[in-house]
Write a protein that binds this DNA or RNA. Structure first.
Ligand SMILES: [Mn+2]
Ligand SMILES: [Mn+2]
Ligand SMILES: [Mn+2]
Ligand SMILES: [Mn+2]
Lengths: 144, 144
DNA sequence: CAAATAATGTAGCACAGGCTACATAACCAA
DNA sequence: TTGGTTATGTAGCCTGTGCTACATTATTTG
């Protein structure tokens, strides 16, 4: 009874991680496109290929999937985000930045904070994010 | 010059995350097998299928890959870890437990800490792990 | 003991996300 | 204007990691 239940709990946790992974690339893509547009640039395949360190083919294939998922629009000149894509991008950006700030606050170097955040951001629950925000604000109070 | 270099940096970060993901399942498998053996049980396909919430087929295919990678030995009755597999399992367990403890320390619930750690553990650098350990020890000092 | 059940394996499929090779289209420069 | 470079797309391949369907081989149990 104890073991069976434990295994079930473990299974749910692993299933959740797999679900997170199946959204990971989409989040990073819309975030990158969002940032390019924010910076007043036209988001192109070439930019994404440089940002992600993959061939243009991988980018095109990914964009095709994300367009089907309703996250972006490739009909015009540059890449455009749909409302849903923009929403996902904004949420991802907030989460990403908070993770970086939190890592910096606990003493991780700028470089490493950015590196680790790129993976960590996709596995953090709202509860943990809130805990990080709390600690971040407490730290800031101490500093002032 | 600024943009090109930035993209290169981003690319290295994403490449690192992809590398982490390609080791993720192996780490979780050897850790699970390690735990079963530690608990005095014989590690079987059935256990893993329950723990990961996948079919026995997925487990068998994964085990075949990991055996080829020299992480485990399926010749006997139960699953056995090689020296390399045991080393990976031990390192993974240390990391996993430290992440859970850290999340608990910053106020995340037991349940959520275990859930988030399952994904987070694979993306934490040694530097960040050290920072977490530092904060954990500082917190403990305060508590006593 | 014989039948049911549990455990393990293989065959073959799907999809994500990498890749190279090849084809265009668009742009730029001599 | 025309030939090289850059940007984008398609075709087709690979690996990892899921799945169902179908054996086969223990292990229980009536
Ligand atoms: Mn990311
Ligand atoms: Mn991950
Ligand atoms: Mn683990
Ligand atoms: Mn894990």
């Amino acid at each position: 009874m104890a073991t069976g239940n434990d295994n079930q709990t473990a299974a749910r946790r692993h299933q959740r991680v797999r679900r997170q992974h199946s959204n990971e690339l989409a989040q990073d893509y819309v975030e990158a496109i969002y940032d390019l547009i924010e910076a007043g640039q036209v988001a192109r395949v070439t930019d994404l290929q440089e940002i992600f360190g993959v061939t243009h083919v991988s980018v095109v294939r990914a964009l095709q999937r994300f367009e089907k998922r309703g996250l972006l629009d490739r009909s015009g000149d540059g890449l455009q985000l749909t409302d849903e894509g923009r929403k996902m991008a904004a949420a991802s950006a907030v989460r990403h930045n908070l993770v970086v700030d939190f890592l910096r606050a606990i003493g991780v170097s700028e470089t490493q904070a950015h590196a680790d955040a790129e993976g960590l951001e996709h596995h953090i629950s709202d509860e943990t994010l809130a805990a990080m925000k709390r600690l971040l604000e407490a730290k800031l109070k101490i500093k002032n």
